[in-house]
């Protein structure tokens, strides 16, 4: 709003809304209001009324926050950051899902390993396989395909 558009009515509406401290006003309206106040003394009463209410309101400040609030806010930060670190590793959803999948795969691997057996049994299986392959090599007869 420019200077020409600032009327007494508009000034009154802005004083009603933002009060008599022009630093709280939107900047464009502030400049225009200052110009109107400077040239029209009849609006000073409106300004004084608004400032009187401001003074009353300022006599009821909000209580300062307690030290306990600060402590509570800071005490609750660590778990969040831990979860954030996990979240950075797995940004696609809850971290428990890949963790559970990994644990399940690990458990299956261990169970399968225990069921199949240790290295000796693996060597024995290898011998069987190699002899089987040797047998194929030695005994294979193309006539068998006929």
């Amino acid at each position: 709003m420019n200077d020409e558009m600032m009327t007494r009515e508009r000034l009154g509406a802005l004083l009603d809304a933002y009060g008599g401290d022009l630093s709280r006003w939107p900047a464009p309206s502030r400049v225009a209001a200052e110009a109107l106040i400077a040239r029209d003394p009849t609006v000073h009463r409106l300004l004084d009324q608004a400032r009187a209410l401001d003074t009353l309101l300022d006599q009821a400040p909000a209580p300062l926050p307690s030290g306990i609030l600060r402590a509570r806010v800071l005490a609750r930060r660590s778990p969040t950051l831990w979860r954030q670190s996990l979240g950075a590793l797995w940004p696609f959803g809850p971290v428990w899902q890949p963790a559970m999948a990994f644990a399940l795969i690990a458990a299956l691997g261990i169970a399968l390993g225990a069921y199949v057996g240790g290295p000796d049994r693996l060597v024995a299986n290898k011998d069987v396989n190699e002899s089987g392959i040797a047998g194929l090599d030695g005994d294979f007869d193309e006539d068998d395909l006929l």
Binding site: G12, A13, D16, T42, R45, Q49, L53, L56
Partner: peptide
């Protein structure tokens, strides 16, 4: 504006200069 007008009316007893017309 509505809030401040209400406060001005209700608190006028504390500050008579809150009220009055231009």
């Amino acid at each position: 504006a509505r809030g401040r007008r209400t406060l001005r009316a209700r608190l006028a007893g504390l500050r008579p200069d809150l009220m009055g017309e231009v």
